[in-house]
């Protein structure tokens, strides 16, 4: 049912656009960094960065915000990629949050604020990065659909959606004042389907969690949560079971719902994605706190 053209014109155009954007940032911005979340979008970003600057290595460091609650397989994958491509991989954790014992089970939205948003802000400030690449796509969510490719943050790292800089043709105005920074989204115009088709076309390595496998899980509040380590305490009535699941997005394991699936090849995943009836963010527990505008609120506060 899926016909895969070797030379898919849409993917070619999207690839060219992303490479163009990455080169612009490196040519114009003082201190760029690539946010590396280890997910499939990050894998695509890394692949594009390798292509854009070849034979040079990507001329910027990579930054991973480690909440200490990521899937183990993600951390292994991160370290392997950094080694394989000789990347400068910076890992940052909000140690204050760790000391206070902030965790996703007890602290809900505060956990995301402290361990992700705040940690990201701290890391960007610590290294003085003026531009940060992110893998955000406009098809993910409504407020993202409104965001420019070059998205400006004031000195408090907040987004001002009502006053975005006009962005015309391919002419990106990268001028900023001291203390301000830019978030850059080279994958803005990609859809989830494009990401999967590109991963297949280019044979890009991704974390095995994306492929279905029998894993230890519990069913909680309508989500399928994987028991990735013994910090996950079962609630009364809950039972650990082994089911064939895969993940459409990856993040902190207690906040990432899997889906029942037997798709264990890229072809199967693309087939499932093409036929998907729900958007991928439904499997993220975090977006649903606070109704449909919650992502915009987070972004205004500095979330990626």
């Amino acid at each position: 049912m899926i016909t895969m053209k070797n030379n898919n014109p849409t993917l070619k155009a999207l690839e060219a656009e992303a490479i163009y954007i990455m080169r612009e940032v490196v040519a114009e911005c003082e201190k760029p960094v690539m946010l590396y979340s280890i997910g499939k979008d990050s894998s695509v970003m890394l692949h594009l960065a390798l292509k854009a600057f070849y034979p040079e290595k990507p001329p910027f460091p990579f930054l991973h915000i480690d909440t200490t609650w990521k899937f183990h397989e993600m951390i292994e994958f991160r370290d392997r990629m950094a080694e394989k491509y000789g990347l400068e991989m910076l890992v940052y954790t909000n140690e204050d949050g760790v000391r206070q014992g902030i965790n996703p089970f007890d602290h809900g939205a505060a956990y995301t604020d402290i361990m992700k948003t705040e940690a990201l802000k701290q890391a960007l400030a610590k290294y003085g990065f003026t531009a940060a690449f992110g893998g955000g796509r406009r098809d993910e969510e409504k407020s993202r659909a409104k965001e420019r490719v070059f998205s400006f943050r004031n000195s408090a790292q907040a987004w001002e959606p009502k006053n975005q800089r006009p962005e015309l043709w391919k002419l990106y105005n990268t001028y900023i004042h001291k203390g301000e920074s830019i978030r850059v989204f080279p994958l803005s115009n990609w859809t989830e389907k494009d990401i999967w088709q590109y991963i297949r076309q280019e044979d890009i390595e991704i974390v095995p969690l994306y492929f279905a496998k029998v894993r230890p899980v519990v069913h909680r509040d309508g989500n399928i949560i994987m028991v990735d380590d013994d910090r996950m305490k079962l609630r009364p009535g809950e039972e650990k079971c082994h089911e064939s699941v895969r993940f459409r997005t990856l993040g902190c394991y207690p906040l990432t719902g899997g889906i029942m699936s037997t798709a264990d090849t890229l072809d199967d995943i693309v087939a499932e994605t093409l036929g998907a009836v729900t958007s991928e963010r439904t499997s993220r527990v975090i977006d649903k706190d606070g109704g449909s505008a919650s992502m915009e609120k987070r972004k205004r506060e500095g979330y990626f």
């Binding site: 406009r138 098809d139 969510e141 409504k142 407020s143 993202r144 659909a145 409104k146 959606p161 009502k162 975005q164 803005s188 115009n189 859809t191 389907k193 505008a293 915009e296 609120k297």
Partner: peptide, 23 residues
Amino acid sequence: LLDGLMAEREQGITIDVAYRYFT
């Protein structure tokens, strides 16, 4: 479906460009 910003929903108008992707 398209007016994604809070200010837009409150005022019932479109302020900025929204991009949608469909096939």
